[in-house]
């Protein structure tokens, strides 16, 4: 490279000098290491601090098993609900022109701009002891607050926009041409959706479901407010992490946390693979 000293500083005009480039990269990597990579690594290191035996022992605790079971149950209810809603809302918003569409789209985004604690609070106000609804339901033996239904509701609230938000821009970009063609060939509405629309949006749908699921299993603030923290009954995994941590049972806390972190890593991996292979098919909604 050093064949001619005269050409040393002639680099393309759209790049920085090498030392500036290395300095910027060093700053970026140090920042990412301190704030992202080390926290991620710490979860696993702390979980295995006292060896694999202690790590596995954490999962023998019946309360931990109950927390895992509850988290799976909540996600299994909340994600399909928001999936159905997301597809329905995207169909109505992307395929039709109607009055108030922009307003409806804004409303769907609303949960993203509400603090998770407030998302929980609204259900406490709605079903709590001071409300009209709570005591009335209780008189029929239906418990919402500090019980599984409340946790599901709060989770549905915070994960509400994910699928719809992914699908709306994608379906808007794809237009109505394919569906109109299918209908003109004699397909029914359902057949059109099943055989034409769904194949077009499947990767975007998967992407949205993935993010929705990650948030559903990991939600802490909203669920914390409505759960009541009853061990073995209304404790989800994130809440259980908190309890274990506050009891100074760090290995167990980080063991459960590592399970959630692994879920996050799988989510990121699949998300990256989806973006890599089906970038164009999900690009419309890639911006969070």
């Amino acid at each position: 490279m050093a064949h001619d000293p005269a050409t040393r500083r002639l680099r393309p005009p759209t790049t920085e000098a090498p030392f500036a480039r290395y300095a910027l990269m060093a700053i970026a990597f140090l920042f990412l290491a301190l704030f992202l990579l080390l926290p991620l690594a710490a979860v696993f290191i702390e979980a295995f601090r006292k060896g694999a035996g202690e790590f596995l022992a954490a999962f023998g605790d019946p309360d931990t098993i109950a927390a895992i079971r509850l988290t799976l149950l909540v996600a299994a209810i909340a994600v399909p609900l928001n999936l159905v809603f997301g597809v329905a809302a995207a169909w109505a918003i992307a395929k039709f022109e109607f009055k108030g569409k922009a307003f409806l789209t804004t409303l769907i985004d609303l949960p993203f701009s509400v603090s998770p604690v407030i998302s929980g609070l609204v259900y406490v106000l709605l079903f709590g002891s001071g409300s009209l609804l709570g005591p009335w339901l209780r008189s029929y033996g239906i418990e919402i607050l500090f019980a599984v239904p409340g946790i599901v509701l709060a989770t549905v609230f915070v994960t509400f926009p994910f699928v719809a938000r992914e699908l709306i821009p994608l379906m808007q970009e794809q237009g109505n041409g394919d569906e109109e063609a299918a209908l003109s060939l004699g397909a029914s509405g359902w057949q059109t959706f099943r055989h034409v629309t769904l194949p077009n949006i499947k990767w975007g749908l998967l992407y949205g479901v993935l993010l929705c699921n990650a948030r559903a299993m990991g939600e802490f603030g909203a669920v914390s407010v409505v759960s009541g923290h009853i061990r073995g009954l209304t404790n989800t995994m994130p809440l259980h992490v908190e309890i274990l941590y506050n009891e100074y049972n760090f290995v167990a806390a980080f063991a459960v946390a590592s399970l959630l972190a692994a879920l996050a890593l799988v989510t990121l991996l699949v998300k990256t693979l989806l973006e890599f292979h089906y970038g164009a098919e999900i690009a419309a909604g890639r911006k969070h």
Partner: peptide, 16 residues
């Protein structure tokens, strides 16, 4: 990796 905070549950990030 930049998306990690979107995917990692907040409680996990908190204790870590």
């Amino acid at each position: 990796l930049v998306d990690l905070p979107f995917a990692l549950p907040t409680a996990v990030a908190g204790i870590s």
